[in-house]
Computed example of a mutant assay.
Amino acid sequence: MDRAALFDVDGTLTDTNHLHITSWWEALRQAGHHVPMHAVHRAIGLPGEDLLDHLLGEDRDHSGDARLSAGHDTLYATYFDRLPAFESAAELLGALSKAGWKVLLVTSATDRELKALRQAIGAEDAITDTATSDDVEQGKPAPDPVRQALELAEVPSGRAVYVGDSVWDMKAACRAGVAAVGLLCGGIPGADLEEAGAVAVYRDPADLLACLGDSPFSWVPA
């Protein structure tokens, strides 16, 4: 049977969380919302509308949401030509692909963002497919994006491993019945990732690659 390696992108394979934080903070500031950056950081990984609900509250005037999201997208786009991938991100995806895993990206990124992120990672030959929040009714921490990835891979939840950097990633994977692996490179403490359901935590893609033979990926037989 096939196996699926599911990966979040921002903060997991690419060192882009703080670029998102700055872009959201500035878009919010320009609209008159004073939200501390640490609060924005904790919300990264949620789809745009859910991120704004998390930061500004659901019982609010939503008429400015499109402008806020557009502001973030415009600011973040200025980094597209220099988005940094984490060390060994491409090698990790390549190693899993060569070992017979279907490698899928599970992300809230827009199509333009995703194109730039994939170019930054540089592992096109290893990537089987992508599941985005546009494909489902609810984004992370709902299980919908992970389940969508499983459907694309045609793999049951017990034959998959999900790697992410946020509590939203861990919760989405657990709710979909998939083993969740946390990475610290997104800036979220390991204890928080474990509390959200991570079965193992590594520093970054390079650390996971070095430990691959003893990681949760080794729990799923070929």
Results as ranks from 00 to 15, higher is better:
G32R: 09
H33P: 06
H34G: 04
M37Q: 15
A39C: 07
H41S: 05
R42I: 01
R42C: 05
R42P: 02
A43T: 03
I44Y: 00
I44E: 06
I44M: 10
L46I: 09
P47C: 06
G48S: 15
D50V: 12
D50T: 13
L51A: 15
L51M: 15
D53H: 15
L55N: 12
L56P: 14
G57D: 13
E58W: 13
D59R: 15
R60Q: 13
R60K: 14
H62M: 13
D65E: 14
R67I: 10
R67N: 12
S69F: 11
G71Q: 11
L75R: 15
Y76T: 02
Y76E: 02
Y76M: 13
Y76D: 01
D81F: 05
R82M: 07
L83S: 03
L83I: 15
S88M: 06
A90F: 02
A90D: 09
L92A: 10
A95R: 14
L96K: 07
K98E: 14
K98V: 13
K98R: 15
A99H: 08
A99K: 11
G100F: 12
W101Y: 12
W101V: 09
V103C: 12
L104T: 08
L104G: 08
L104A: 14
L105Y: 11
T110S: 13
D111F: 01
L114N: 06
K115T: 10
K115H: 04
A116R: 00
A116G: 00
L117D: 02
R118K: 08
Q119P: 00
Q119R: 07
A120C: 01
A120F: 00
A120G: 00
I121T: 01
I121Q: 00
I127A: 04
T128E: 10
T128K: 04
T128F: 14
T130F: 03
T130K: 03
T130H: 03
T130M: 05
S133C: 11
D134G: 04
V136N: 07
V136F: 09
V136T: 09
K140H: 06
K140L: 08
P141T: 07
A142N: 09
V146Q: 02
V146K: 01
R147F: 01
R147G: 01
R147L: 13
A149T: 03
L152P: 02
A153D: 04
A153W: 04
E154F: 00
E154L: 04
P156T: 07
S157P: 01
S157D: 05
S157V: 03
G158A: 07
A160C: 03
V161E: 05
G164D: 02
S166F: 06
V167L: 01
V167C: 01
W168K: 05
W168N: 11
